[in-house]
C-alpha cells in the first residue's frame, strides 16, 4: 500500500518559487492499478517522482508498505528503490547494452549470480514476448518493443510497485493497447500495485480501477474510475471525460442533460417511461457506450423542454431510476 500524506513540492529558481504540488493526499491499495491524470503542468510527473524520491518532496510524507520513505538515509532509500520498478515515456534503455543486458542490469547491480540472472531474464523475455530479440541493441527495436524491454527491466527485481511515467505517451494507439493489456496481465498475474500517470483518458478507462485527477498541483477529484466517468463533478474532469460531445449549437435550444446509464439502469426503458409518466418532450441528440475495464456505461445526451415540467422533477425521476444526470444550460 502506498500512502501519500500532505505532500508538497516547490521548485525554486532564483527568487521565483513555483508550487508544483500542494497538499496531495492519496491512498493506493495493494494490487490496484491506480491512475493519475492531468494536463501537462498539472504536477503528475513530479508526483510520481516523489513516490520513489527521484525528486525530493518539499514537505509531506510518502509511506510505502508502512515505511515512511521521506526520512530514509541514501543507503536505505536505494534498498527501497530496488523494490519499486519504474518505466518511462522515453523508455530510458541503455543504448550500449543489448536487450538481455538491459533487463539483467538491475540484477547485476546487486551482484546476482549469473545463472540466476540468465534464468530470470529469459523468463521475463518470454513474458514480454521478446525472446528472439535478446541479443539485439535497443536502437533496432520499435517503440512498443522498447517499452516491453523497459517493463521487463522494471520487473526483474520482483518489485512490489510499478511506476509508469507516461509509459504509453510516445506510442501509437494500437501499441498503447498492447502495453496496457500487458500491464493488466502483470497486475493480475503478480498482484503488483501499478501507478500510472498519463494525460490520456483512454489509458485510465482501459486499465485503472481508481483515479485521481490533478490540476495545478492539486487533487480535484478522486475515486473509482467508473464513478468518475459516470458522474464527473469537476470542470477539468469533464474535459477529460468529454461528454458534451461537441454538439453543433444550432441543433438545440432547450436544456441539455447528459445521462449515464450504468448496469442497474441499462435494462429499463427509462426514457420512454419518463415521456409517458411526466408528459415531457425528450429529444435525443447523441449517444454512445463507453467501456471502463469491461464494464459498459451508456451515455446519452438529450434535450428536454423545461417549460412543461420543472427540471428538478425530471432530474429526480432519473435519479430514482439509477440514471446519473448532469445539466448543461445552453439556452
Amino acid at each position: 500500500m502506498i500512502q501519500i500524506k500532505q505532500l508538497s513540492k516547490i521548485y525554486s529558481k532564483g527568487k521565483n518559487q513555483v508550487s508544483a504540488l500542494e497538499d496531495i493526499n492519496l491512498t493506493i491499495e495493494q494490487g490496484t492499478i491506480y491512475g493519475i491524470i492531468g494536463l501537462s503542468g498539472a504536477g503528475k510527473s513530479s508526483l510520481i517522482r516523489c513516490i520513489n524520491r527521484i525528486e525530493e518532496p518539499t514537505s509531506g510524507e510518502v509511506w510505502i508498505n508502512n515505511v515512511d520513505i521521506t526520512h530514509l538515509s541514501p543507503g536505505e532509500l536505494r534498498k527501497v528503490r530496488k523494490k519499486i520498478g519504474m518505466i518511462f515515456q522515453n523508455f530510458n534503455l541503455l543504448s550500449s547494452k543489448t536487450v538481455f543486458d538491459n533487463i539483467a542490469f538491475p540484477l547485476r547491480l546487486n551482484k546476482t549470480p549469473e545463472n540466476v540472472v540468465k534464468e530470470k531474464v529469459m523468463a521475463l523475455l518470454k513474458l514480454v514476448d521478446l525472446t528472439e530479440k535478446a541479443h539485439v541493441y535497443p536502437s533496432q527495436l520499435s517503440g512498443g518493443q522498447k517499452q516491453r524491454v523497459g517493463i521487463a527491466r522494471a520487473l526483474v527485481s520482483d518489485p512490489d510497485v510499478l511506476l509508469c511515467d507516461e509509459a504509453t505517451s510516445a506510442l501509437d494507439p494500437k501499441t498503447t493497447k498492447q502495453i496496457l493489456s500487458l500491464l493488466k496481465e502483470i497486475n493480475q498475474g503478480l498482484g503488483l500495485t501499478i501507478v500510472i500517470i498519463t494525460h490520456e483518458m483512454e489509458v485510465i478507462k482501459e486499465v485503472c480501477t481508481d483515479v485521481t485527477i490533478l490540476e495545478h498541483g492539486r487533487v480535484v477529484e478522486q475515486g473509482k474510475t467508473i464513478d468518475i466517468f459516470s458522474k464527473p463533478g469537476n470542470e477539468i474532469t469533464k474535459h477529460f471525460v468529454d461528454q458534451i460531445q461537441h454538439l453543433p449549437t444550432h441543433l438545440h435550444n432547450g436544456t441539455l442533460l447528459s445521462l449515464s446509464f450504468t448496469q442497474g439502469s441499462a435494462g429499463e426503458p427509462v426514457i420512454s417511461k419518463l415521456i409517458k409518466d411526466l408528459q415531457v418532450d425528450v429529444n435525443i441528440l447523441a449517444g454512445k457506450i463507453e467501456w471502463i475495464q469491461e464494464k459498459p456505461i451508456g451515455k446519452l445526451t438529450v434535450e428536454v423542454d423545461r417549460n412543461t415540467v420543472p427540471l428538478a422533477q425530471i432530474i429526480d425521476y432519473f435519479e430514482k431510476n439509477h440514471v446519473r444526470v448532469e445539466v448543461f444550460n445552453y439556452a
Binding site: V80, R81, F88, N92
Partner: peptide
C-alpha cells in the same frame, strides 16, 4: 533519462 532510470533502480 537513462541516469534517472538507474537512480530509480537503486544504483
Amino acid at each position: 533519462g537513462v541516469i534517472e532510470a538507474s537512480i530509480a533502480m537503486g544504483a
